[in-house]
């Protein structure tokens, strides 16, 4: 399937995932204790994963899963 067709097929789903991810991070940061939560390693890992998800080169998913794996 050509990339343009894949973009048609998955645009809304990916848009939804990005919006949900942003909303989830806002939810945690805006809640009572949010300032502490943003320093939690799990929160920092999610932010790093979000940055990886939007980088230019591919291999994003493997990088994210490796980064989220315990040594």
């Amino acid at each position: 399937m050509p990339a343009s067709a894949l973009l048609d097929l998955y645009y809304l789903q990916i848009r939804s995932f990005l919006v949900e991810a942003a909303a989830g991070l806002d939810r945690i940061q805006n809640a009572p204790g949010g300032a502490e939560a943003v320093r939690d390693p799990r929160f920092q890992a999610l932010r790093a994963a979000a940055a990886t998800a939007t980088r230019e080169e591919t291999g994003r998913v493997e990088t994210i899963l490796n980064d989220l794996s315990v040594d």
């Binding site: 809304l12 939804s16 919006v19 949900e20 909303a23 989830g24 805006n30």
Partner: peptide, 16 residues
């Protein structure tokens, strides 16, 4: 399910 709001985002807005 995909566009508009999820339940979690709707509750975020209610809280906000």
């Amino acid at each position: 399910p995909v566009s508009k709001n999820s339940p979690a985002r709707a509750v975020d807005s209610l809280e906000r």
